[in-house]
Design a protein around this nucleic acid. Structure first.
Lengths: 339, 339
DNA sequence: GTGAAAGCGCTAACAT
DNA sequence: ATGTTAGCGCTTTCAC
């Protein structure tokens, strides 16, 4: 494998000059630069990234800390889409990406700082970990530059990317109200999840705006789980048959909710409307297809990486980015049926 | 950040000894070893992986070459599941994984060898690229150790992981025949795709075994695309209404096939049975849910990484691994209806 | 059992 | 504009 030393030898100059020429410094004569470029091409030279990183004391590597990557039953590809976005940005900026899986037993033994220190990452993107995850506390305490997806923490080295979840929930509920619904329940995720809190807020906001009293009994915990949502909705429908619409904080739960309705002999959307959140792949395939609030997940990843690199290179003006959501109308919502 | 030099200073010995102690060499007295271990813990030492890799001339990094990671519309999470499997194996073996996206314009400009050389990867896993992809030719020509997913190439440095696609197709068609079907069509993927060739072989085999003549007009090209499959099946059904079952080389195409049937007023599975391949997430969610041939995709990734590392470390006995498939019976297949 | 010294391939401060 | 030199943190001969 060719090194700058080889090039220097052929070109009859020092390695310094080669390094300078190759890195586009100005203080190299056009002539020598041209010669060096040609030789390096001829010799099929690629720089040894490891050596460079060692001496520069920058790994040009960012870590992605995620959870739940070691099961073979991933229901939605949110994580993957984020990953794709991150990768796209990172690779165009000449950074590398490495993966930390918080579920991997080997990695679980180590602290966050250890993980990062060992791999010499310059910064970290954190995605899909819960608010009460011990790693999160470490993130905030450590001084490793970090961008969180959907967790609003801001310090000098920590930023975040999120969508406007309040507004997203607004859109969903507003849509239902426009269809004539007033008895609107909500199935939420984890109380500890930031997005859940925000979506709940949007739900309440919107009801209030339309002078509809929120009924706390109609706000259920679904834990972002299909089965749990199904169960919760089942019992809700038995006790409160007057409900004509349900806003779910995730599509997975919305699918559970639809099942619950169908099991009770209710037709969606004729008897009851369901709106989800996320626009997962399944949303357009289930029957009825799901009206939902979509997020540009790829972009979230891309922006997260972009923000992190800005922070790393000291050019970040603000430590957060907020993305838009869009209401996607499909079959699961319809005008309220007045019997 | 602590270095072995720091430790040596505190321990009052040379860096050599520290290195030896930390790396578990035998020629260090139990006493000094213990002392060094303690100090390194106290000083919160982590080795500088870059320096180590530089001097060892091994990056301990493997590249994953995939395509189609930069769109936000990934229909199935095959790639992600493979990735998860790879990551799990790789991280437990102290390797790093980096991603090459063949669709990224920046990376497309470079040759395979350039890509690998620059990033100094020790080996590569290739997934989801077509048989006629120019990168594939390069893979075989280069001497970079490589494992292919679902492409059977074996050289001294190239191996592959696949499932038994002939047997998988056998299982699918056998299942249909047991249900009484004899007029069984097939929707295949790309003729250039290895898996397509194998699945076709399995389809033909099984028919033959049961003395059913294969009808070449009943073998369609669906290009692994839902819409294309739908179209192809539509015209097939018009011309050959005697067909009672269709074996599709992918679930995505099976979904298209179901739509085509339904559009023609045929009920699945009452009038016509459909069997897919892959067991993608959607398979259990569409209506009717899909009978299909499942693969342990996570395991494929895991095995690919494991095989590659074996090759890298010179301990591979054979350069390929074959995984099993399993028939998953759901709603889309039923006994033939004799009218 | 331990240490001195060389060197992996690169960048950069300091000459000239 | 170019070269000399040192050094990033580590492993590994080779000598004692």
């Amino acid at each position: 494998m060719t090194t700058i030393k080889d090039i220097a030898k052929v070109a009859g100059c020092s390695v310094t000059t080669v390094s300078r020429a190759l890195n586009g410094y100005s203080d190299v004569s056009a002539e020598t630069r041209k010669k060096i470029m040609e030789i390096s091409k001829q010799l099929n030279y690629s720089p040894n990234i490891l050596a460079r990183r060692l001496v520069m004391k920058k790994s040009k590597t960012i870590g992605l800390l995620v959870s739940g990557m070691n099961r073979d039953d991933v229901k939605d590809n949110f994580t993957f889409r984020v990953l794709c976005g991150i990768n796209d940005c990172v690779s165009s900026r000449e950074y590398d990406l490495i993966l930390f899986n918080t579920d991997s037993s080997r990695q679980r033994e180590k602290t966050y700082t250890q993980l990062c220190q060992e791999r010499r990452v310059d910064g970290v993107i954190v995605q899909g970990i819960k608010l009460d995850d011990p790693y999160l506390k470490e993130v905030m305490e450590s001084d490793i530059p970090c961008v969180l997806v959907d967790i609003p923490v801001e310090t000098s080295t920590v930023g975040y990317v999120t969508t406007d979840n309040v507004l997203g929930a607004n859109k969903a509920v507003e849509h239902l109200i426009k269809l004539g619904h007033r008895n609107i329940a909500m199935v939420n995720g984890y109380p500890q999840a930031f997005v859940s809190q925000q979506r709940l807020k949007g739900y309440k906001n919107t009801l209030e705006k339309h002078d509809i009293a929120a009924n706390s009994k109609w706000i259920l915990d679904g834990k972002f789980d299909e089965k749990k949502a199904e169960k919760a909705v089942s019992s809700l429908l038995s006790s409160s048959p007057e409900i004509t619409a349900i806003f779910c904080a995730s599509d997975v739960m919305a699918i559970g909710a639809i099942k619950a309705c169908q099991n009770q002999g209710l037709s969606v959307p004729k008897d009851i409307s369901i709106v989800g959140y996320d626009d997962i792949l399944l949303a357009s395939y289930v029957t009825p297809s799901l009206t939902t609030v979509g997020q540009k997940v790829f972009d979230m990843g891309y922006e997260a990486a972009d923000l992190l690199i800005e922070i790393l290179e000291g050019e970040a003006k603000q430590n957060y980015r907020m993305l838009e959501t869009q209401l996607i109308q499909r079959e699961s919502s319809a005008p309220v049926c007045h019997v």
